[in-house]
Design a protein around this nucleic acid. Structure first.
Lengths: 343, 343
DNA sequence: CTGTTAGCGCCTTCAA
DNA sequence: TTGAAGGCGCTAACAG
């Protein structure tokens, strides 16, 4: 299918017997122009259905007014909330966004970066894939002075602005809550250990335990690659052990829900036998049975903040030295952890 | 923040004392070029960290290799699945995507259309907002011969290709299933009546009833604007009536779940007192209690199909007369409707 | 095999 | 108040 012809300033100019520059000036409402000429041109443009060509402008001014976004996956509620915040913010400030998903693949992430840079995006918002363990591609981006910031899945290795939630504190809130409920043998179900959030949330987990005088014990840490299969396997392993925990803090809600399913299958009562808490506050968590206690992350706000900050940097409203924004998480108490009321 | 300087072919040419066209040819591996020259140029480009400027190419060839996507909202699982399918497909075929969300607003949808057209997207994939009841903006797009197709939320008014699921048949499957379970007084909970899917799903509902010799009765149709508030209100109204239904078919899962919550609050047993079925198969539906019987829509596949078809049209692999793709839905039987086994 | 020229659509001097 | 010229980065047609 061939795209229909788009009217250009040149054509308007020819029809009216004026120069292209005059048309250009009229269309951007320049004051140094005879009102009549302006009127004639604007009317002609409207009647010819003229549509401004942003591409040409971008080339001209070396600014595309496009932001690139790379996320691990589009279908997760958290990331789509981020994107929603980014999109709304960018739109309000006159920018479009181009989106890529790395599908949690390092190679894909590098490829995405390349096409977005090629497309001359003015800046990038990046959330790293699970596989990303080396950062040369980001370093190169940095060296080439292409503005970008990271959100949620970040690395400390590159000195750019970052937007995250307070993972450690969120985990602390969750585990502290479990402790308040009387649990003392609390397991931590972790994602891959090299993931930033796995580490941070473990910090909070350990801090809460320490505060209650419980010796740090790695023996209650279970690691999964977050596939349903392995989540199930790890949970079964835990159940097979002699000294079962009385509570589980799972690094993210989907993991918590996988754990919940396995526990229920095995006749374990939640929260009576084992209390459970997650992290993220996915919509699903509110409706599972029992409803899942979790930590709420402000996904939409993160997206807004990240986009606003990047645009502030681009527009030099704000100096471009790296800042770290840490958003607050909140505890959402639900039934999966209410020992006191349900026991 | 100023974007770092990007190396251009011109600079490479100057460094090497050749012409820009030679550089251009070398970089696209043209055969009519001395291997040595080519080698020198490619090496120089690499060492200077040259990055191709897609924007300039777009302007030159009048093709941006960008697809525009407009969806009502980004955070719904169904639409993010669509987008995921679109993105993966576009990427594979060398296209980027620009995404806008209309936030269910007609004005926003028109504005989105405008900026995407301005950005010179090669084609558009559109899913209409709930508010969209007039179609001049699409007609204009059509008249201007900008290739686009619609998916999921479509209108028959514009002769372009459409990708939808078989809504009527899906509804038929759900209601037929409820009938098989022995229910005879089946209510239909509908969204706004001017919505395409509201109508189509009602058709399937009525067809199933008819097949069982149940007189069409509008009295069991309940209409909501799909806000939680009104969903609740309508459900309460239904409960207040004398002749309660023994089953409910809700137009979409979130509505079904709102209904489920209200029923449970009122001590109604599901499915024993009232069976329940939804439509969409959101991830949430699998984990609610009782798990929700629903109709599965292939969101990712819809996105893939839509993107592939549009690109086929653009690349003239396929003639550009409008086609209608109707994807199959499947019944997902879960506990909210299993009268036979649970009664 | 390589260089020159022209132009994609737009805007910004500079000149008139 | 308006026009002409030049250029953003790249490519394609035409020379040589």
């Amino acid at each position: 299918m061939k795209k229909g012809h788009q009217v250009t300033m040149k054509e308007i100019a020819k029809k009216l017997g004026v120069s292209v520059s005059t048309v250009s000036r009229a269309l951007k409402d320049s004051p140094e122009l005879h009102p009549d000429t302006k009127k004639r041109i604007v009317e002609m443009a409207t009647s010819m259905n003229y549509q401004y060509n942003l591409l040409a402008q971008s080339l001209r001014i070396s600014r595309s007014k496009v932001l690139g976004v790379i996320v691990p996956e589009l279908t997760s509620h958290f990331f789509s909330s981020n994107i929603s915040g980014i999109q709304d913010t960018a739109y309000k400030r006159g920018y479009n966004i181009m989106i890529c998903q790395s599908n949690e693949s390092f190679e894909q992430e590098k490829a995405n970066l390349k096409t977005l840079v090629s497309s001359q995006v003015d800046g990038l918002l990046i959330s790293l894939s699970r596989e990303t363990k080396s950062y040369e591609h980001l370093q190169e981006l940095y060296d080439r002075e292409i503005p970008f910031i990271m959100f949620d899945r970040v690395t400390e290795e590159i000195p750019v602005s970052k937007v995250t939630v307070d993972d450690a504190h969120g985990a602390y809130l969750a585990v502290n809550h479990l402790l308040q409920q009387g649990c003392r043998k609390i397991a931590y179900f972790s994602g891959p250990t090299d993931l930033y959030i796995s580490k941070k949330r473990k910090e909070g987990y350990l801090e809460a335990l320490q505060e209650f005088g419980i010796p740090e014990t790695e023996s209650r840490v279970y690691v999964t690659d977050l596939t349903e299969e392995m989540n199930r396997k790890v949970t079964m392993e835990m159940l097979a052990e002699g000294d079962r925990p009385d509570a589980i803090f799972a690094m993210i809600d989907p993991l918590a829900i996988d754990v919940m399913i396995v526990l229920k299958e095995n006749g374990i009562k939640i929260p009576q036998d084992i209390a459970l808490a997650g992290f993220t506050n996915n919509p699903t968590s509110a409706v599972v049975e029992p409803s899942l206690t979790t930590i709420s992350q402000p996904g939409y706000e993160m997206g807004q903040l990240a986009a606003n900050h990047l645009l502030d940097q681009l527009d030099e409203i704000v100096p471009d030295d790296p800042q770290s924004f840490i958003l607050l998480t909140t505890l959402v108490e639900r039934n999966s952890s209410q020992k006191s009321t349900t026991a």
